[in-house]
């Protein structure tokens, strides 16, 4: 692994300033679970690592019935899974986050890190898109909010611009009744990354109708092929012919 300098800004503004100053050679670290692996494999060789872990409040989760759920980017998967408001009002998110990897990865990895990595094999993206999540990004110069769906460009590619930091994810409170499902297909081992993951949300009129009228949200996240020589998603017919069973209505 390359040598690097390590900074721990105490505010988002400071972090933005570090990013601007070190432009190309800096990487942000939040939980670090993914960044570390890439650095060990020498796929990323930043000379400056800027940690967001010591910014007060950067891991908070709050809920307001009007405003919805606001998750700061530094919140860990496990915090989201265990948050009472998530469990009560966003059962799809609870179901998704409790299935991400294992507890000790969820104890470390943050939602901001997950989304910014743009890894199509991970679970949260599809469910958040299905819930119409929007994200807020900021830099020294500007702040912008966009639907999460627009953020994902391709495998490991996002719309994160130089100098930007993802600071918050907002999920509006869904109307009831709500039908939902998150399933993933694990080809080999229960501890594997999913080959395909599908998150589905059904609202109002769609509920109770036939399955094909359902408005399934699909994202780039649901397509993934692990190894170059292994068949990709098109060889799994249920992906294209049927939606997952709707077993949950709240």
């Amino acid at each position: 692994m390359v040598k690097f300098d390590y900074f721990e800004p105490k505010s988002v503004e400071q972090a933005c300033a570090f990013l601007e100053r070190h432009a190309d050679e800096a990487k942000l670290i939040a939980g670090g679970t993914a960044l570390l692996i890439w650095m060990r494999m020498m796929l990323l060789n930043p000379h400056v690592v800027v940690s967001l872990a010591r910014i007060p409040g950067f891991d908070s989760i709050s809920f307001d019935p009007k405003d919805g759920l606001r998750i700061k980017a530094g919140a860990r998967h496990r915090d989201i899974e265990l948050d009472p408001a998530v469990r009560e009002h966003y059962p799809l998110l609870y179901e998704t986050f409790r299935k991400v990897a294992q507890p000790r990865i969820r104890n470390m990895g943050t939602i901001g890190g997950n989304l910014c990595q743009g890894d199509p094999l991970t679970d949260p993206g599809a469910s958040l898109i299905a819930m119409d999540a929007e994200i807020t990004l900021t830099s020294s110069k500007a702040k912008r909010t966009l639907p999460l769906e627009k953020f994902f460009v391709d495998y490991y590619q996002t719309d994160l611009r130089p100098g930007e930091i993802l600071i918050e994810i907002r999920v509006p409170l869904p109307a009831r009744p709500l039908g939902w499902a998150h399933i993933k297909f694990l080809p080999r081992s229960q501890e594997d990354f999913a080959t395909v993951g599908v998150a589905l949300v059904l609202r109002g009129n769609a509920l109770g109708k036939r399955r094909r009228s359902c408005a399934a949200k699909r994202s780039p996240m649901i397509e993934s092929g692990r190894w170059r020589r292994w068949p990709r998603m098109k060889s799994i017919p249920w992906m294209t012919t049927a939606a997952p069973p709707i077993t949950n209505v709240t």
């Binding site: 679970t33 570390l36 692996i37 470390m108």
Partner: peptide, 18 residues
């Protein structure tokens, strides 16, 4: 695996400075 502030973590996925 170790516990960090009471939470189970994998100590290879963490820089010591963190």
């Amino acid at each position: 695996t170790v516990l960090l502030d009471g939470r189970l973590v994998k100590s290879c996925l963490l820089f010591a400075v963190q």
